[in-house]
Design a protein around this nucleic acid. Structure first.
Lengths: 216, 216
DNA sequence: ACCTGAACACCGTTCAAGT
DNA sequence: ACCTGAACACCGTTCAAGT
């Protein structure tokens, strides 16, 4: 709560809000309350303001969701394509990409479906990745497909990473699916350092990079 | 509209609704209206009924969303693991999996984030895939990771498939990202039969399967 | 221009009343 | 048990009034 003082109607001497403040606070509120309770009223309350005040700085709730994307994706490291071979760079990029989304568990569920439509930061990332791939000798026509395939895997993995940990548990149905249940248990013992989701991500990432190298 | 006749209050002689009818109609309404306009009122209207009547057969809107999943996933073909080698079976399974979700463009955005938590049909699919992998000599501890990695890629690809086609267009920023723009154009000419999303999916699927085979 | 206060249409859900 | 009708709390958004 930024301000508990009462405020009477009329323009205040100093602005209480700004677009950036609203977006940054939105991320905080969303991560605390979850998507269900992420309302304009809850956001306004956190900012110490009445709900309609928000509309002086943002277009509405959809505008806020779209604007939050840049805060989430700010942690993605695509600079490595300048210095490392494409396959090593891809692994680092993919891990930071997944981690950036997984750090905002509720944001991802809201952003996964909201289209990006030519956001500048995303395009800059595409440019850097494309450069890295081309410098490594990738044929022009396959670069975007390879990059998108990696992105698809990363986004799916981020959704998996924020899913409830018991999501794949057979529970009472275990006797019906013995082979799967055994495989699940065997996988748990494989590497105690990594979660089930982490293991799947690392195996898939290694496989995808190796496979792409072969199809280059 | 199932019924335009007026109906007075009180229990009708014959039931108008059932859980299955509500779920099947929900899919239809959602695919027509989109997630924004998919309301209990719109669903009730399509069924020729007042909104509160729905609550006699389903727990609420979340229950409806969860129940819709089985209708969406009904088209997934995992029977091929019984007859084909694991890598060929995986390709067919993955294509049908992505197609099933892509056939319900709005459902996927709502279902991508709703956890499955031990739904029986999903577990049966996991069992069949696990059996196929084990029969092919996969080590027990890696089966689930490989399957989940594939699922992550498939789900991400399905989201990509239903995204607006111009989502990756640089638009006015093209001069800022020349390498990416060139690669995008080169990719478009590569195979006129396949969409940009299809090309990325097919390349990624082939790479992932080949890579997994190498890491088996 | 930027805040509050009042109001609007709509949402999911509950519950009494009717058959 | 299963429908309608009326009601509830809450949602995002608009707009006049105040400074």
């Amino acid at each position: 709560m930024a301000d508990t003082l009462e405020r009477r109607a009329g323009r205040p001497a100093k602005n209480v809000l700004s677009r950036d403040l609203i977006l940054a606070t939105a991320i905080t509120v969303l991560n605390r309350t979850g998507p269900e309770d992420f309302t304009m009223a809850a956001l306004a309350k956190e900012l110490g303001v009445k709900t309609p005040a928000l509309y002086h700085h943002v277009g509405g709730k959809n505008d806020i969701l779209a604007g939050m994307r840049q805060f989430v994706t700010a942690g993605i490291d695509y600079g490595v394509f300048k210095t490392l071979p494409w396959d090593e760079a891809t692994v680092i990029w993919a891990r930071s990409y997944r981690a950036a989304f997984a750090a905002h568990p509720y944001a991802i569920s809201l952003l996964a479906t909201v289209p990006v439509t030519g956001a500048h930061p995303t395009l800059v990332m595409y440019e850097e990745v494309s450069k890295g791939f081309r410098a490594a000798g990738w044929p022009e026509a396959k670069i975007v497909s390879a990059m998108v395939a990696l992105e698809n895997f990363i986004l799916g993995s981020a959704l998996d990473a924020v899913a409830p940990p018991d999501m794949m548990e057979p529970g009472d149905f275990a006797p019906d699916v013995p082979v799967y249940t055994n495989a699940l248990r065997a996988g748990e013992g494989a590497d105690p350092q990594l979660s089930r989701a982490d293991q799947a991500f690392e195996l898939g990432l290694a496989a995808l990079v190796a496979g792409l190298a072969a199809f280059k």
